[in-house]
Amino acid sequence: MIDGTDAPPDSSGPSSAPASGRPMPPRRRKALERIASIGASAQAAIPGLYAWAITVAPAAWSRGAPLFAKVAAIVGVLALVTAPAVEGADPAESPDANGSGRQPIEVANERRPRLLERARAWTGPTWARAWSVWGFVLSSAIVWALVPSALSAARLDGVRGALGMVGWALFAFASAGPALRSDPSLAGRIVASTSLKPRSELPRGDGLYVAVGVALALAMQAVGWGVAAPERAVLVRLVTVVCGVAVLGGTTSIALARHTERVPASRRIRLRRALPWLVMLALVTVSGVVVGMAR
């Protein structure tokens, strides 16, 4: 099984440090190593979850679907999500699920007819693949068998069905193929050099501005979900998205203006520059209040 785990990190080589030459913190390095060791089942889980969300979940949670169908659908998701953990549970015995890197003792075990012996010879990736593929496929089949009307042409949208087929094909492809791993020759291309120095140090507090902008933009998205007319609902969504982007741009502009190295404008110039907009704001606000009171 090619899962990236057979490439041990070389602390003395160039891959142990970033291009800047600075040693990578141990915690960060460990996290990157764990990400790099993700196997085929984790890569297959992404299209699998997509296919589940399009073809299985709508059937399991459709009107009139039994409770067992929902349970089976949840089991399918659990099979996809927990398969990477199963795969990583036994990394020392996972040379290759396709058989190319198996030890002679494992080959000898295969010749034995006993099922238990063969099951014992299975490595973590083999168990993960069996759990991911069969757990997901069987649970999905159970859901479809329990709710056959969910797949009828009258209830299944054509585009959604085609997208579901693509998702299932990607899941099958990712499950059957070996895990993608990084090119080992890339490590040789890294040239160790002196530390890269940033042009300027960013002061603290910028994240707070961006967080406030994101919170405001997200709060706007909560408006207008109960509109009945489709055209107006789309218009409301469009307006809220544009307004959210504008507010996010405004907050980031304020954050960036705090620590600019350019010549700071004096208070008088800033006020003069914003005065037309402030006057316009006052005019619009007052005119709206006057019109509202006159009604």
């Binding site: 207008g224 507010v247 405004g250 600019t260 350019r262 520059r273 914003a274 907009w277």
Partner: peptide, 29 residues
């Protein structure tokens, strides 16, 4: 806009645009 009060919606959106522009102009270096 969701309540189909279009004039009121335009009024508030104009106020929002102008206020946002004024705020950004105030902090521009």
């Amino acid at each position: 806009l969701a309540r189909a009060s279009d004039v009121e919606a335009i009024y508030f959106l104009v106020i929002g645009v102008v206020a946002l522009r004024a705020g950004v102009q105030l902090v521009r270096p």
